[in-house]
């Protein structure tokens, strides 16, 4: 399975560096091939190969480097696409998880009766203490505190501590 670890950010940079390096080597070889006949006489060290042979070899190297460069370019595009897909999946998954925690009317319908009553009261208040919710539902403060904590554990409600008081607000 693909994961972000399979294609770390450093790998992309290394690919780019290699790509650049190959490109520059290619440019140097190409310039050398073009200028060589005018500027330099073949040294003895260039051994027995004549000028035309050297040009041919260098042209082949240049061709091979160009192919490598193209392939690396393709690889970079693929990597970029994979990264986009992964990023998109993460965002979609995030949105989904976010939506799961919204206390809308459909979620209210799915909650057990005792929690629904508390959740509707909190929907009305927006932000409240257990005592405030208890005043609406007509149940004991301790009971509402327990239900609000259950909603907080389910991720529908945020629990905030303010000085000595505990407040609950919709997530």
């Amino acid at each position: 399975m693909l994961s972000n670890k399979a294609l770390p950010f450093e790998a992309t940079n290394q690919l780019l560096l290699l790509n650049n390096l190959i490109y520059h080597i290619g440019v140097i070889i190409y310039c050398y091939t073009i200028s060589y006949p005018q500027k330099m006489e073949p040294r003895q060290g260039v051994l027995a190969a004549n000028r035309e042979d050297v040009k041919e070899i260098l042209a082949k190297i240049l061709e091979a480097l160009t192919r490598i460069e193209d392939a690396l370019g393709d690889l970079y595009c693929v990597e970029s696409e994979i990264r986009d897909i992964l990023r998109g999946s993460r965002e979609k998954a995030g949105e989904y998880l976010e939506a799961m925690k919204v206390l809308d009317v459909v979620t209210l319908l799915e909650l057990p009766d005792h929690l629904r009553k508390t959740a509707v009261a909190l929907s009305k208040l927006g932000e409240a203490r257990a005592q405030d919710v208890a005043e609406i539902t007509g149940r004991e403060r301790a009971v509402e505190s327990s239900y609000l904590n259950q909603l907080a554990r389910l991720g529908y409600v945020k629990k905030i501590r303010r000085k000595h008081e505990v407040w609950f607000k919709l997530a």
Binding site: A99, V102, T107
Partner: peptide, 9 residues
């Protein structure tokens, strides 16, 4: 759904 929740409030 978030909008609907805010609308209820």
């Amino acid at each position: 759904r978030k909008w609907e929740m805010d609308a209820l409030r």
